[in-house]
Design a binder for these strands. Structure first.
Length: 127
DNA sequence: TTTCTAACA
DNA sequence: TGTTAGAA
């Protein structure tokens, strides 16, 4: 039921590096138990890693992911946890849409400047 | 061989 | 997060 796996097995399974796992631990997203100095990961850690990776796919920062996961594991107040996650999702969506709009604007500016360049070159060629 | 910590051309 | 040196 409750198995222990090495850092290697976990990195192989999720295609990440040991450095990444240790980094997540440093950031407080993971806290595997220890066998002496070596890290021992259990099912809970594996589930947690899944949530971390999912959070990354949604574009959340590790700090945001940490708070979300901490709430997720806190059995009390599931409704509040879900509402918090929805709020973060909305913020993320708004942020991405804004970036998308900014890029569209920048692209349009590039087009305008390019048109100016083309016109000026024609002037030089003609006169 | 594997994992760990710590540090950074 | 990558890479790597040196230790356990």
């Amino acid at each position: 039921m409750n198995y222990n796996i090495t850092i290697r097995q976990l990195t192989d399974e999720f295609e990440i590096t040991t450095r990444t796992l240790r980094f997540y631990e440093d950031q407080g997203l993971l806290n595997p138990s220890r066998n002496g100095r070596n890290r021992i990961f259990c099912e809970g850690d594996r589930t947690r890693l899944n949530l971390i990776l999912r959070g990354k796919r949604m574009g959340f920062s590790l700090a945001e992911i940490r708070t979300i996961i901490d709430m997720y594991e806190d059995k009390s107040g599931e409704r509040q946890q879900l509402e918090h996650l929805q709020q973060k999702i909305n913020e993320q969506r708004r942020s991405l849409l804004q970036k998308q709009a900014d890029i569209v604007e920048t692209l349009a500016e590039l087009d305008r400047v390019e048109v100016g360049c083309v016109e000026r070159v024609r002037e030089l060629d003609n006169g």
